[in-house]
Amino acid sequence: MGEWGQPRDVDAAGLDSFVALGDSFTEGLDDLRPDGGYRGWADRLAEHLATANPRLRYANLAVRGKLIRQIVDDQVPQAIEFGPSLVSFTAGGNDIIRPGSDPDAVAEVFDSAVARLAATGAEILIGTGFDTRDTPVLKHVRGKVGTYNSHLRSIADKYGCRVLDLWSMQVLQDPRAWGEDRLHLSPEGHRRVALRACEALGVPVTEDWREPWPPLEEQSWRTQRIQDIQWAREFLAPWIGRRLRGQSSGDGRTPKRPHLERLCTTQATDTKRSADQH
């Protein structure tokens, strides 16, 4: 057993199937592909795994905006039916940020789902919440996120899960790690999280998620305030409006990769080329 009770490194070549469960974070917002679809850290992790086993099959059942109960009811049974060798499970963030939510109750639902997944014998990778101290609006729920993370650590110890520790990723405090909406990771943020996931699994990579960012160009106070106002108008107001109307950005949406299928050869090749050139 390694740090925090995690098992030793996995044999990436022995992983023949990977199913990702969750919400917008795992769906991949805001990491756009050239075709307009979303890539994201889970896709990137699958691509890293496919370099070790080109026959890897991968499904991504995550749908943006989903609450933990919806993920547990809709996605977990399908993952169990697939019987994959690896499951990533990140959920609860959309619950935690809601006013009046109870991180203890959310963790109980998470625990019950992990118990079901663990019973299949699959390797399980769970993700903690981000440190939201520098995030507009979400910095006010930082205490609840910290409480939830403590529960997730206990659950990981209980079931022998591997932990994708997002809270400790200080490189994500840089604004360039986030998209325009300041709620979802940028392509570079997703790339670093995928590398962190590889580290949690013990999968060798040639890049380092801790690599310092290039110096950030300073902006005037006026420029920053203009950007804040634009962000509030384009992203914050619509987000609040959906919450007040009881709507979700995921209403009516289906998973982007609903079946276990092999990755396109070009995706794995592009990942290796990127690593070689970085």
Rank of each mutant, 00 (worst) to 15 (best):
G2L: 04
G2P: 11
G2Y: 05
E3G: 05
G5L: 02
P7F: 04
R8Y: 11
R8W: 13
A13Y: 10
L15C: 06
L15H: 10
S17M: 08
S17G: 10
F25W: 14
F25A: 14
L32Y: 11
R33H: 12
R33W: 07
D35Q: 05
G36W: 08
G37M: 14
G37V: 09
L45R: 03
H48L: 10
L49P: 12
T51G: 12
A52E: 00
A52K: 09
N53K: 04
R55C: 09
R55Y: 10
L56C: 06
A59M: 07
A59V: 12
A62I: 01
R64L: 01
G65E: 12
K66D: 05
K66G: 13
L67E: 12
F82V: 04
G83V: 10
S85G: 13
V87C: 11
S88T: 04
T90P: 15
G92S: 09
N94V: 02
P99E: 13
P99M: 14
P103C: 11
A107Q: 01
D111I: 02
S112P: 08
A113I: 00
A115G: 13
L117I: 05
A118K: 00
A122D: 14
E123P: 09
I124M: 11
F130H: 05
F130L: 05
T132H: 08
T135W: 07
L138Q: 14
K139P: 12
H140L: 01
T147D: 03
S154L: 04
K158D: 05
G160K: 03
C161D: 00
C161L: 01
R162S: 04
R162F: 07
L164H: 03
L164F: 02
D165I: 00
D165M: 09
W167G: 04
W167M: 01
M169F: 05
Q170L: 07
Q170I: 15
Q170P: 07
Q173P: 06
P175F: 06
G179Q: 01
D181I: 11
D181Q: 11
R182C: 11
L185C: 13
S186Y: 10
G189K: 13
R191G: 03
V193D: 00
A194P: 11
R196Y: 02
C198R: 00
E199M: 11
A200P: 08
A200S: 15
L201N: 15
L201T: 02
G202K: 08
G202A: 13
D208P: 03
E211L: 05
P212H: 00
W213H: 00
P214C: 08
P215A: 02
E218Q: 03
Q219L: 10
W221Y: 08
T223Y: 04
Q224N: 13
R225M: 13
I226T: 06
I229W: 07
Q230H: 15
E234V: 15
E234W: 13
F235G: 06
W239G: 05
W239S: 13
G241A: 00
G241V: 14
R243W: 08
R245Y: 03
G246Y: 10
G250Q: 02
G250S: 09
R253T: 09
T254H: 14
P255S: 07
K256E: 14
R257Q: 15
P258E: 09
T265E: 15
Q267H: 06
A268E: 12
A268R: 10
K272P: 00
A275Q: 05
A275V: 08
H278C: 10
